[in-house]
Design a binder for these strands. Structure first.
Lengths: 121, 121
DNA sequence: CGGTATCCTTTTGGATACTG
DNA sequence: CAGTATCCAAAAGGATACCG
């Protein structure tokens, strides 16, 4: 079995999935859009201050290219662009949730937590 | 709420999780060890031929450092080293499974599959 | 507001040689 | 067998300035 996608060959779904969502900030972007949608670029920048604008835009473009998100441009001044998850993008919810859950587990075991307050999302 | 781990600060479990398992080949390594354990380096190289030895060892070392896997050295000649998932590492099963599932979904929607044979793991 | 362009650093990858 | 060392190329990531 081999899957052909964008001139590349993958031998299983996992490898294909990682090539699509494996980018440095993609899970963070998808997490954002699962919690609030649609989102404008500037709003996303406020939610993800650790990502610089150029990288954020690059990763958004790649996700759009792979049809995980949609990008809607409104022809107004000043410009307005909205990002949303596509149907296949929405199906990433279990991936993001399981990563969050595991991270919380990991933090409980190994992290030194400073403030003993429940995690907010 | 902030989590301190290895001199770094994370604001939620997801970011911490991504810093631990976000490496280029880490999910692939964990997937291997979920399906067969323990594994020796040479066996893993056979299962993951797309990863070169230097990168494989690097990522294994990082996972060991983060206590996601264990590395057991047997004092024999020739050397024998076995890798296994730790307790917290085993808990990554839902993450890996959800990624595989999503990848299969994605492939079904967008991939051009050449051989119509069920995916084997 | 939502981008590009430019320049720079870090990470990843590949080949090859060597070691206990 | 399970690595380490070295060198080098390519890709990903990042800071900053500028633009319609």
């Amino acid at each position: 079995m081999s899957i052909h996608y964008k001139e590349k060959v993958f031998f299983n779904g996992k490898d294909l999935a990682l090539s699509v969502i494996g980018g440095r900030w993609k899970i963070a972007i998808i997490w954002c859009l699962l919690h609030q949608s649609p989102l404008r670029l500037s709003e996303m920048q406020r939610i993800l201050p650790q990502v610089n604008q150029r990288m954020l835009i690059r990763q958004l473009r790649e996700l759009e290219e792979d049809k995980v998100i949609t990008r809607t441009v409104y022809p107004v001044v000043p410009p307005k662009v909205e990002y949303q998850l596509s149907e296949i993008g929405l199906r990433l919810e279990p991936v993001v949730t399981s990563i969050c859950d595991w991270g919380d587990d990991f933090a409980e075991v190994f992290g030194e937590q400073v403030d003993k307050v429940p995690i907010e999302y």
